[in-house]
Design a protein around this nucleic acid. Structure first.
Lengths: 172, 172
DNA sequence: TGGAGCATGTAATGAGTTACATGATTGG
DNA sequence: CCAATCATGTAACTCATTACATGCTCCA
């Protein structure tokens, strides 16, 4: 059994099913199609593509304008993607800097704490509003539930955070 | 202005306010007191402690049993902690492997998908139950809202994920 | 026609995980 | 008294972010 690919590499393979693309393209598509709950940076894209090419899971085409080089999925790459896709989804990460600070709230000046909470509230409310707007637009455009599943997670997440801020954190 | 410390290092400084401790102690305390939304590994603890010692933010004591070496907070370390604590909480990370797979659900065999969702549901339900149990115990022990704020976040998060699984993902 | 901004990629650094090693304790 | 387990730490590796460099395009 060959070494399994990591999730970021697998995501790139998955995107490449739609046809060859440059690292830059893949980066853009990942940002827009994979959503806020699986982010990748450009550097990661290039690193993973290099590694995938070395393993023969993608092939690298000729250089085009601006050093652009398209890569394409190989059969072996498609197989590696399918294996990853069926593998157990492990490694959920939720990391909340605000929560870490609240653990030490005793040492935090009252006023600064209030500011911080207000800032967090505003940021999450803004993201919620953004998601709601995207949902509205998607529904008008006739998107199905399948397309909205990530968005729905985002909506629930942001609402949960806001409820927590308003109902649980408020009383401090 | 000195280079600010990173969040993991800051957490260790924060814990050291209660008195000197070994890396191992700090690791244990971080795991139990900082909760599931800011995890650190043992290796991180030692790496950060080394770096903190080089910067004079902690001092390293003599070796005890089993190569144990306690470190203690310096005044400068306490200042660095306070600075970090008051700084803006940036860098929230939420990373959901299941969501990434759902983005490619078209290529996933029906049965495997169902399994995967069932597994996720079970895992989150178990964590929710665990949190509820901790909450019950804490309340009996007379813990205040201040102590429970992290836990409350966990409760809301797990409930939101379960609702998402049951109400939004179900229909696929 | 030149400079503002987009496209494309690399290098350097930082953070996080896994695997390894080894010395104390302790219960059977 | 020795085997299992706990305590303690290091090394190697993978993953992720930030900073940098440079070539195109296009429009003012």
């Amino acid at each position: 059994m060959p070494e399994p690919v990591n999730a970021t590499a697998a995501a790139l393979l998955g995107l490449l099913r739609d046809g060859p693309a440059s690292g830059y393209d893949l980066y853009q598509r990942a940002a827009s199609e994979l959503g806020d709950f699986w982010t990748v940076t450009r550097s990661q894209v290039y690193r993973e593509l290099t590694a995938l090419a070395e393993r023969g899971l993608v092939t690298t085409g000729e250089a085009g304008a601006r050093a652009r080089r398209d890569v394409a999925l190989t059969d072996e790459g498609a197989r590696a993607f399918a294996d990853w896709l069926a593998s157990d989804p492990v490694g959920e990460v939720v990391r909340i800097p605000l929560l870490l600070r609240l653990a030490f709230a005793d040492a935090l000046p009252e006023a600064r704490l209030r500011d911080m909470l207000a800032g967090a509230r505003a940021a999450h409310a803004a993201r919620l509003a953004e998601y709601e707007e995207v949902e509205r637009a998607a529904q008008e455009a006739g998107a199905g539930d399948r397309d909205l599943v990530t968005l729905r997670f985002g909506l629930r997440y942001e609402r949960a955070v806001l409820a927590w801020l308003d109902e649980d954190v408020r009383r401090l």
